[in-house]
Simulated assay, not measured.
Amino acid sequence: MFTFWANPEMTTEVTSPYPIVYNGTGSVDIVMYYGSNAADETLTSGTSEPITLMPINKLEKWESAKYYKVGDIIEPVIANGQMYKCTIPGTSGDVEPKWQTKPATVISSGTAQFISYGAKFVCSDVKMALSRSGLDTADAGGGISLGQSVRGGAPIAIYIRVTNRFNDLRSDTTDPCISIGTNKVILTKRPI
């Protein structure tokens, strides 16, 4: 199975859906390894475009009459650049609340309660490249092309730089807002 690995030996899988977790200020560079440890597998693009890995937004919009558990992170239906963390579990109300942007402000919605959790992470907070030096010139929020097909058995090092655009500490450890996705792909196995 093609996935991200924490090591080049492809023995420790990174938790799917590959969250980009960063809880600091400034920037941090990380490396993960993409591939399959099964040499008989091939990943092929499902379109005429090459296989592309890219940052994707996973932050869910607030919904009415939805149960939220502690730690769920959401954003308003009309995004305001902020994220909100559920601190008291419950079912949201029928009408969207007025979202305050002052940090740690409490917002109630039905029986659920949220706090203003600060500025949300966005795809442009992430740069990806096939080399560490490539991160310096990579497009913020851009993807990286792996070609029309990738064979299993050999990892591809993926370098990632996550930047916090703000001076305050931000965290998305409980419900990652940004993940890495791919365009449409097809997995095949060669007969043994």
Rank of each mutant, 00 (worst) to 15 (best):
W5P: 06
I20E: 08
A129G: 01
T47V: 12
R170S: 07
V126S: 04
V14Q: 10
I20F: 11
G81H: 05
T15G: 09
N37K: 10
Q113S: 15
R190V: 13
S149K: 15
T91F: 03
C86S: 08
G134F: 00
S179V: 09
I192C: 07
D139N: 12
A129R: 00
I78W: 06
V77Y: 04
V122H: 01
Y33V: 05
P17V: 04
T111V: 01
S36W: 13
K102V: 14
S64Y: 01
C86R: 02
P89N: 05
A104D: 14
A104Q: 13
F2T: 12
V14T: 14
F121Y: 15
I186D: 13
T111Q: 09
I73A: 05
Y67I: 02
S149E: 13
G46H: 02
K127W: 01
K61T: 08
T25C: 08
V150T: 09
G134D: 02
A6C: 11
Y22G: 09
G147A: 12
T3W: 04
A6N: 15
V14A: 14
I20L: 15
S108Q: 14
F2K: 09
I88H: 03
E49P: 05
V70E: 03
G24H: 11
C123S: 11
A39T: 13
V150P: 08
Y34K: 04
G90E: 06
G152D: 08
S149H: 11
N57Q: 10
V185N: 12
F2D: 10
I178Y: 06
G26H: 11
P17Q: 03
N7S: 11
K184Q: 10
G81M: 04
K69P: 01
L130G: 03
G26E: 10
A129D: 01
I192W: 06
I107H: 13
